[in-house]
């Protein structure tokens, strides 16, 4: 493993200052559960490491006007332990619960999971369907983008060299919204997703109908992706039978473009995109489109 210069910022403005100064020759370190693996494998070209883990301004959760803000250094465990998260952000909650193991959840941060930009990052499909926005900040200014616009490829994002992810926020789920996060790994803990699916449905006043539908898939394309065809089908149909759900789920086949690797084949990933979506929708349907208690 090669050697690095280690820098630490204690405040946000210090961090932004340093980012500007090092002009891209610096890698941000949050908890390091992704980054250290890459450092060990000599996969990081930057020569400087900027540790942001002690910046208090980047840690915490708060709600403002029905919008839940999760600051990037918040750990998965902190999200799971935050009051009401299970109802107000059920899909993200389930995603965080599926991450790694207690040790990884105690350290790993939401910001790190997002900024790492892995197609298998488990919170990302959940943030997609929870309609999350990301605030990116540099010394010279800040901008807000939709989470969907953040990723450009595996491990690649629109973050500029001098920008930091400083806030992740999304509307709290209302009572007429239901959803799920489902993950298929090679085992039940410490597993990288072979396929993951998240969905959120806003129920219409008519039975088995939806005003809005959000569906996202992980590990089946170069980035996490939205499933627009599936969403349209969910919004345009009366979803009132197992057969119909099966039919809609099969549209997933048109959304995904997986590859084969040592964990699973392309074909299996394709089929699992369909079947996980099917299973998730079916479970909700069987529960009268109500959240499970």
């Amino acid at each position: 493993m090669k050697e690095f210069n280690y820098l630490r910022a204690d405040t946000l403005s210090e961090a932004l200052e340093m980012l500007e100064e090092f002009q891209g020759n610096v890698k941000v370190l949050a908890a390091g559960t992704d980054l250290v693996v890459r450092l060990k494998g000599d996969m990081v070209k930057e020569e400087n490491i900027l540790d942001i883990s002690r910046i208090k301004e980047l840690k915490g959760i708060f709600t403002e006007n029905g919008i839940i803000h999760i600051l990037p250094l918040t750990t998965h465990t902190e999200i799971l332990e935050y009051p009401d998260m299970k109802t107000a952000a059920q899909i993200l909650y389930d995603a965080c619960k599926s991450v790694g193991s207690p040790q990884i959840r105690n350290r790993g941060t939401l910001g790190g999971n997002v900024a790492n930009a892995s197609p298998a990052g488990d919170t990302i499909p959940a943030l997609f369907v929870q309609e999350a926005k990301l605030k990116l900040k540099s010394k010279s200014g800040e901008r807000v983008i939709s989470v969907e616009d953040f990723f450009t490829g595996p491990g690649r994002t629109v973050l500029k060299p001098d920008e930091l992810l400083v806030d992740i926020y999304f509307p709290a789920m209302s009572d007429d919204e239901v959803g799920f996060f489902k993950k298929l790994g090679q085992r039940n803990a410490l597993a990288i997703s072979v396929v993951s699916v998240a969905a959120k449905l806003k129920k219409s006043t008519e039975p088995n109908k939806f005003d809005k539908a959000f569906v996202a898939f992980g590990s089946v394309a170069p980035t996490v992706i939205r499933g627009n065809r599936v969403e349209n089908a969910l919004m345009d149909s009366v979803v009132d039978s197992r057969e119909k759900i099966r039919y809609i789920a099969q549209l997933a086949w048109r959304e995904v473009s997986p590859i084969s690797d040592v964990r699973a084949s392309l074909k299996y990933r394709q089929d699992m995109s369909i079947n996980l979506l099917y299973e998730g929708l079916l479970e909700l349907y069987k529960n009268g489109w109500n959240r499970r208690s």
């Binding site: 193991s101 090679q186 085992r187 039940n188 803990a189 410490l190 597993a191 990288i192 040592v262 964990r263």
Partner: peptide, 14 residues
């Protein structure tokens, strides 16, 4: 499969 990320052994959850 050269480490425990790809060589899968059961965990307590399995």
């Amino acid at each position: 499969t050269v480490n425990f990320s790809t060589y899968i052994i059961p965990t307590v959850k399995d």
